[in-house]
Nucleic acid binder design. Structure first.
Lengths: 196, 196
DNA sequence: CCGGCTTTAGTCAAATTTGGCTATTACGCT
DNA sequence: AGCGTAATAGCCAAATTTGACTAAAGCCGG
């Protein structure tokens, strides 16, 4: 979970001292749950583990009313070094990521042409709508209030979305033009062999 | 792990009867470990779990020499239905995936401009080399022997890679032209607040 | 023929992740 | 003022994933 660790260290570094729910709220405000593993269980697990490893320091808990006591954290020098090391690793590393859509594509021969084309066209539509949302966020000024790198992230998501939408449409066109990608519907369901 | 389950069911469906190592070898031949969670522990875990749920059927083990006995599996009708259901879900679902590079970008303000630009240029270079590899696989005939959808997957990976490489170069140009994305190097390391 | 390396086949202990759960407090609407 | 919902704050049992490990067999070069 090196990305999760880096993010938790980074948020603590920027906002310290914080408690778990502060971290959770901050990451949710970035919609980080959509592109990183930062559900509550992962956040609290990482906070405790990083404190156990001396990368974060727990401050005395405080109690507010009858709510659960909340533990605040600050980063240590060791933690700051680890944050920069992990961040640098992640910046320089170029590696594919696990992608459920690629998994589905590997078995495309098992999907009838009608459904395959329809799903690809729908995907292109959803991607284009999402990318349009990023662009109107930019022009509406909402993004203008945010640091420049946030806009750059949206540009990246937009560029990826555009490229994938175009690919979806191109492949749907081929399928609808009769391009054969199954041996036959019968064979695809029984004995054929994918030698990807 | 619905993508992992779908892939295991799919491979068993296409190659049955198989044992775990057959599945492992087949997925490795697709380089599936690069874009799916199919390390040995996940494969064998999924095989046992799917058999336990009645989606796969274990056949009597066979022994070859003094090697560990190997359990062969075949798919059940229930498993075939689940394979198609999961495959359809994954074809139609449009959702971002956990991406370590996006995690790093969220903390870009903590990376000095020199390093950020260098990492982005290096990333662009690696992506372009990878995409060129896909294209030469296509022209060399290696891909010609494979079913069409395999080429389509490479086209998708290529389209994504191109889009991201262009984005990397564009952002590196901005950084090198002096675009400010940290408040200051000092502020970025101490008290600033990322409001993504 | 022998030695070194690869392949075969599965497992394991640990790491990581999930997302619904708990009870209290705060807020908004009627 | 009261009710219903959302926010607060952390946790849990379970699910999922990892990748190095094991020992025997096979292969290739010297």
């Amino acid at each position: 979970m090196s990305a999760t660790r880096m993010m938790i260290l980074g948020v603590v570094s920027w906002l310290e001292p914080v408690h778990g729910y502060d971290v959770r709220r901050e990451l949710l405000s970035w919609s980080a749950d959509r592109w990183a593993n930062v559900q509550p269980g992962s956040i609290y697990h990482a906070l405790r583990k990083l404190a156990g490893e001396g990368l974060l320091r727990e401050l005395p808990s405080e109690q507010v009313g009858a709510r659960p006591a909340r533990t605040r954290y600050e980063i240590t020098e060791k933690g700051r070094a680890e944050f920069h090391r992990l961040l640098s690793d992640l910046m320089w590393d170029v590696k594919p990521v696990a992608d459920p859509f690629a998994s589905a594509l590997a078995f495309l021969p098992a999907v009838p042409p009608d459904e395959a084309a329809a799903a690809l066209r729908q995907r292109a539509k959803v991607l284009r709508t999402t990318v349009e949302g990023f662009r109107s966020a930019a022009t509406s000024g909402w993004l203008g209030d945010k640091p420049p790198h946030v806009g750059w992230m949206f540009e990246l998501f937009g560029a990826r979305g555009d490229a994938e939408a175009q690919w979806c449409e191109r492949i749907a066109d081929r399928i609808e033009s009769g391009a054969s990608y199954t041996w036959s519907e019968e064979a695809a369901d029984t004995s054929s062999n994918n030698q990807g």
